[in-house]
């Protein structure tokens, strides 16, 4: 009798174990999870990239070689995220900000914001440019109907914010799902 019960218990546990092993869902300690997709698919040719003095900055690209090529930043800031390890960092290079996110032991490009007209996108758009020039570069379809042109490609978005029909901000941002 007792052996039968034991066999039955073990049988049920095995079935449950197999079911659990096969089921979906995230696996880690919730508190130790980190951002997904870190460092993945950063060199997709379809994605918009910012290039500064020959250094290509693609979203979700490992940032260490980029920082080395860019040289010393004019200012640096960092932020922790509640409960998670690692720092979100920002580097200011005078004409643009470079933001990073941590993944494992490495940092990756999260965002680039252009802040003056000494730099431009690969499509030739810089701060102060006209609406017509932006539409020529990214198409009128990319207008959000309010105040910005938003061009998405792969795992990134390029946002060009307009103020009085002039470009006031250009932002490349990684997209996370």
């Amino acid at each position: 009798m007792s052996k039968r019960i034991l066999a039955l218990v073990l049988g049920v546990i095995m079935v449950c174990g197999l079911a659990l092993a096969g089921c979906g869902g995230s696996s880690d300690n919730a508190g130790n999870d980190q951002a997904a997709d870190g460092g993945a698919a950063s060199s997709n040719a379809e994605e918009y990239k910012f290039t500064y003095n020959g250094t290509e900055i693609a979203m979700k690209a490992p940032v260490a070689p980029i920082l080395e090529a860019l040289g010393e930043a004019k200012s640096y800031n960092e932020e922790t995220s509640c409960a998670f390890e690692g720092l979100d960092k920002s580097y200011f290079y005078g004409s643009f900000y470079l933001y990073t996110y941590p993944q494992g032991d490495e940092d990756f490009v999260n965002m680039v914001e252009l802040v003056d007209d000494t730099v431009k996108t690969e499509e030739g758009i810089s701060i102060g440019d006209s609406k017509e020039k932006v539409e020529e570069a990214y198409g009128a379809d990319s207008y959000n109907g309010i105040n910005a042109y938003v061009a998405s490609a792969g795992e990134m978005t390029l946002t060009i914010i307009m103020d009085n029909d002039k470009v006031s901000s250009i932002q490349y941002a990684a997209v996370f799902e």
């Binding site: 995230s26 919730a30 999870d33 980190q34 951002a35 997904a36 997709d37 409960a83 996370f176 799902e177």
Partner: peptide, 16 residues
């Protein structure tokens, strides 16, 4: 809030 895996982890910290 962005990355959904991280969001799920935050959800857990409040809801569990």
């Amino acid at each position: 809030t962005g990355d959904s895996e991280k969001r799920e982890a935050y959800n857990r910290m409040t809801l569990d």
